[in-house]
Design a binder for these strands. Structure first.
Lengths: 332, 332
DNA sequence: ATGAAAGCGCTAACAG
DNA sequence: CTGTTAGCGCTTTCAT
């Protein structure tokens, strides 16, 4: 069997309390004792049982992450940041792939409760009321990444989507474009949908450009819908010279359609994306896009969670975005 | 405080033993009792403590996954399959991003030991001897996905890389290509490197085609190296008409370079990739490639792990690959 | 069918 | 500086 703290105590000729003390380096033992204990630990190949620790203490050093779908460039980058920060701070994370399925999410929340995680990070999930209530019930700190809740009970960490969209559009305007279309995501999405659309419209308006509804098409953020949206835009072409696309994946789709239609980017039409996932450097030509600091969002989100677990107050944070210029936008 | 089994027992006027029985639906209680208990549980909002359970029982229903880097299309898809299978079978997974760093890996193994996971899945990691030894030390079942260990102590699950490469090359040959180059990964990689290179050579040989060393260039599987490799190939062009590329990312890089160089794919040169990640449908033109069933690999790997945990014997499994024809290969 | 009681491995008073 | 002891919440004999 695996050696326990008792075995160590016996071997080192001390009490379990003493072993526990050196294990948690709390004061109360001589150097000699420490040496004896350490030796015993080493010889026995002893490893503390985290379950027992968690049972008596209050911390498990385990965190839960609820994420819609890990096989997704955005999610996985955020996850990467979360994981790195967790590991550096001596915590583990249980990953919960919710598939945006409310049912599954609720089940997961119970699991996390039973496993007594110290805190929870919610990534990109729309927070329904039921969801939020249950989260509160769990009575552990919660941090939201790249999402928000209307009630404002949980701190979130994201970029300023509206402002980013505004700047992306202004960037196009600064390049001389006047007839700028947008491939938007679902406007019901209060993070990546509506705000980006609003930012786009605002930029046009404030620059004295007309907002034409026929220049705005809606996709679902993914590649295929990007292709489709581009087709629609091309069909009722109103002489647009540039497009602001609400995600890199849709932008890649738009690029594909443009290519198939014999439209050259950026010669005939300029495109700016949103996200700056790995995909952005792989498209032909490489995609100019608004970069979101996904890794940092995850990393910082986890740090905040840890802070909250320690009982400190934490506030929401807006991280800076930046436009990465590549080759899909040209001056007109 | 959170209600415990004692609270439930008290409220239902039974002993904790009885509550435990209905909780684990073991025999030994009347329908009435069950009802009382269930009601108490409901009213109290009781949730069992998994730590306590794990401490006394031997199972934690928690698994560990060691993966080089989750923000990677291949890894994340495998992870997706793992997670799905785990959740469906009432288990959680702790994700361990090793960054291919031996040090980090060793630390993680200790964490998994301390948290008493029931089993471990290793994804895409080169298994050093030290690594393997520690894995054995943990004394929990281990399954390897998309990797192998020379000692053959652990069951693995992957595709037949050599055969897949062989078929990819033969596919090109069947399309009339005779001068076929290869962009290989690192030949030290015993899964995605050497076997694929061997398969390529074998196909050429068995079809009476010469294996020319100048037609083989080596990258590191990633996009940038794909671009570079393509440049090298184009520079000392020996009239090649097709290329077998050992990963989709490198293939995408090759496509970029081709485009920049004014080489049309597939008109001037045909390309077949390997992996069939999401990227393959997003390239211009869409990439013909060898599809690996990543999701299934993860899903099945986890099922095997569960089987092993139950004490049953499990064997390695080779999953089928298939060539997905898209638009980067043409008949010559 | 049900209860009492002995731990699982550890931490944290409380005594010396 | 060190040991004793009482749990943490649960499962599991062993009785009844």
């Amino acid at each position: 069997m695996k050696p326990t703290i008792k075995d160590v105590a016996r071997k080192a000729n001390v009490s379990v309390a003493t072993v526990s003390r050196v294990l948690n380096n709390q004061p109360g033992y001589s150097v000699e004792t420490e040496k004896k204990v350490l030796e015993a630990i080493d010889e026995l190949g002893y490893h503390p049982n985290a379950l027992a620790r968690g049972l008596v203490g209050k911390r498990t050093k385990t965190l839960g992450v609820l994420i819609p779908r890990i096989s997704n460039m955005v999610s996985s980058q955020i996850m990467n940041g979360i994981e790195d920060a967790a590991h550096k701070n001596d915590h583990s994370v249980i990953i919960c792939n919710t598939d945006n399925d409310g049912q599954k999410t609720m089940v997961y929340l119970d699991v996390l409760r039973e496993k007594r995680v110290d805190g929870i990070i919610v990534v990109s999930e729309m927070l329904t009321e039921e969801y939020a209530n249950k989260l509160v019930e769990l009575k552990v700190p919660v941090i939201l990444i790249s999402t928000i809740d209307e009630t404002g009970q949980f701190p979130h960490i994201k970029v300023n989507d509206e402002q980013a969209a505004y700047q992306a559009t202004e960037y196009l305007i600064s390049k001389g474009h006047k007839n700028i279309a947008m491939i938007s995501g679902t406007p019901e999405d209060m993070v990546a949908g509506k705000p980006r659309l609003d930012g786009y419209k605002k930029a046009l308006r404030e620059n004295g450009l007309p907002v034409k509804e026929e220049n705005i098409v809606f996709g679902d953020f993914w590649f295929d819908s990007g292709k489709e949206c581009m087709e629609r835009l091309l069909n009722n072409n109103q002489g647009i010279t540039a497009i602001f696309v609400a995600s890199d994946e849709m932008a890649a789709g738009a690029l594909s359609t443009a290519y198939k239609s014999g439209i050259r980017v950026p010669e005939d039409i300029s495109i700016i994306g949103f996200d700056n996932t790995q995909l952005a450097e792989m498209t032909i030509p490489p995609l100019t896009t608004v970069s979101q600091p996904f890794y940092q969002m995850g990393y910082k989100g986890l740090k905040l969670l840890l802070k909250a677990i320690k009982g400190k107050e934490v506030n929401s944070a807006i991280l800076p975005h930046v436009i990465v210029e590549r080759e899909t936008v040209k001056k007109v």
